[in-house]
Each structure stands twice: as structure tokens, then as C-alpha cells.
Design a protein around this nucleic acid. Structure first.
Lengths: 167, 167
DNA sequence: CATAAGCTTACCGTTTACGTCAAGGTTAAG
DNA sequence: CTTAACCTTGACGTAAACGGTAAGCTTATG
């Protein structure tokens, strides 16, 4: 066995984690359910950039990184996005993050408003995509549910036709 | 130019189409937006079986076939299903169709009820898949909308800080 | 009936999204 | 300090989902 704990290992249960202990690729893999290969691949595509590296050049992931991985999984599995699309989606996120940063440094109220506008525009684009998907799915669901209710109707008709149901 | 109209071409606009004119692969391709290659590929995978063939062994598609193609597109684009998953999904549809057929021929009310049960079970499985996807998407949407409302709040704060807005 | 436009099967090429070694450096434990 | 267990970067392999091309048959028109 090797590689016990990489950074400041917080005794389990103390609840305090001022700066969370960075994770190895193996740990991230087991927590996210992805393989190590996949994590490296996502990095290669620019979807993910682990927070740091160890002295020996090992990848080190923060909790934020893990959250990003989860986000990627969501986009991939829920939306069926290609990794290229996810990349674009996440880049919008990143730009929002940069805007947030600029926002905090900006003192001029008008400038801050403009930044909010830009940020909202990015969010709206993402929302549109999602709502489109939802609408399609709801339509599909409706058609299936309609079938179920038709069957329910049929069923009551048939039950009335049945002579009796003793036993 | 060649291949004008394959079957009984209905004068446009009469509205009557007792049995619709079968379509060539080219026509199906242009109507569905898929390529001919893709249509053949889907057939190869067992997703699609054109209603018939011409004397010269040309594929002939019915309107039902076109509807099936649209269904496949929906499942692929909306649900992000793999073609293998779509195949399973459609097989459930097909089994339902067979059950419908059996249902019409069955006279015993009890037997018909049992068939309805089986059919409903198939539908429920499909519904579960869809609702799972919808739930995930709605959560994603909610988080984005929350951001928008936070921004709206911020915006009103900033507007109050602005001294004036003449011009 | 010749001929161009369309269709057929068959086969090879490509992109995406990884899996799978291979060769070699790193780290914790004995 | 050796060694087993991880890690690193290549490099090659592969399944899915088509794209493209070739060789040959079909069909509507001049």
C-alpha cells in the first residue's frame, strides 16, 4: 500500500475544513465513478484543469474540481451533450466566473450593471437549451401518459363486462 | 431526371389518402433531415424496417416508417440515447403494438385485462426513464434561474446606488 | 434504346470517447 | 534502500455512428 493521505488529512468527523485536502486522481475517480483515464482525457480536451500538481508531478484535485467533474457528468448524461458542447457550456461558466471576479473589483455601479447584463445573457442561452430539452421530454411523457389513461378507461369498461369476481 | 413518383401519386390537395404513396429513401431523407446513409445504417441496426421493396429492390417507406424515423430522432436528440438504447425502447413499442393486435383478436375479457397490464408495465418503464431525465434537467434549470434572480436582486440594489439617470 | 440520375450492397475511412498496455518516475512501508 | 503500489506521458486499439466511394443494377425520359 502507498499514498495514504496527500495533504492535511482532517480527522474524520471534526467538520472543520478550512481548505479541503487535495485529492489524488484515484480518489476523484472513485468518488465520481469515472475512470482515471477519463479524467485525464477530459483534461486533455480542456474540460478540466486540476488545481495543482504534487512535487512528483501528480495531479491534485480540489473539491471544486470534483464539483466540475460532476457538472460534466450531468451535462453528458442528462443533456446528452458531446464533450465539445460541454466544453462550450463550461467556458460560458468560466466567463461568468471571470465576470464575477471583475465585478468584485469594479466600483462603478454602471459598469457593474453592464457586467450583470452580459452574465445574464450567458445564462439565458444555457436556459434556452435546457428548456428546449425539457419541453421535448414532457411532450413524450404526455403521449405515454395519454396511453395509460386510455388503458385505464378500457380497463373499467372491461371490468363491467366481467360477469362476477368471486373468490 | 428520374424517379418522379413511385406509387399512386395523389394530386396535391385532394386530402384523400386511403393508402399513402410509398416513399423512396431520398424522399424520406429530405423529409427527416437524415442522410440516406444514416437511414440504411439504422435499418442495419434493426431500428427501422422499410415497409417494402420495389420490383428493382428499392426500399419503399410508408408514412408510419417516417414517423418511426422521427421517433428515433427524438430519442436520439432529446434523450441522448444510444442507438442500442433506442432499439430497446422501440422494441417495447413494437411489443405493445403486437399486444394491441392480440387484444383486438382476444374475446375473453380477463385475458384482455392481463394484456393491458403487461402493456402498461412497458409504458411505465419508459415513463420512468423520461421522468428521471426531466427531473435532472429541472434541477439544472432551477440552479440557473436562481442565479438570475440573485442577479435581479443585485441589479435593483445597484440602480438605487446610481445618483441619477438623465438623458 | 441509350443515358443520366437513383438505388443496391460492400467495404474502407473518420471522429468521438474512451480502454489498454508500455516504459519509466514517485511514494509509503518494511 | 528496496519494493509494491501509484502516478506520469505516450502510443495504439476499439466500439459507436456515421461519411464516402466503388461496382453494378434500375428506372424515367429524350
Amino acid at each position: 500500500m502507498a499514498m495514504a493521505d496527500v495533504a492535511c488529512s482532517d480527522q474524520a468527523g471534526t467538520g472543520r475544513r478550512r481548505f479541503s485536502p487535495l485529492l489524488t486522481i484515484e480518489q476523484v475517480a472513485s468518488r465520481t465513478g469515472l475512470t482515471k483515464r477519463t479524467l485525464r482525457y477530459y483534461e486533455e480536451l480542456g474540460l478540466l484543469r486540476p488545481t495543482g500538481r504534487s512535487d512528483g508531478n501528480y495531479r491534485l484535485y480540489s473539491e471544486d474540481d470534483v464539483a466540475r467533474v460532476e457538472r460534466i457528468k450531468e451535462l453528458r448524461d442528462l443533456l446528452g451533450f458531446s464533450l465539445a458542447e460541454i466544453r462550450a457550456f463550461l467556458e460560458a461558466d468560466d466567463e461568468r466566473e471571470q465576470l464575477r471576479e471583475a465585478f468584485r473589483q469594479e466600483s462603478d455601479a454602471e459598469a457593474r450593471l453592464a457586467q450583470l447584463e452580459r452574465c445574464d445573457a450567458l445564462i439565458q442561452r444555457q436556459l434556452q437549451l435546457i428548456e428546449q430539452k425539457i419541453a421535448g421530454l414532457e411532450q413524450l411523457r404526455a403521449s405515454l401518459q395519454a396511453r395509460l389513461t386510455r388503458h385505464a378507461q378500457r380497463r373499467t369498461e372491461l371490468l363491467q363486462q366481467l360477469p362476477s369476481l368471486d373468490q
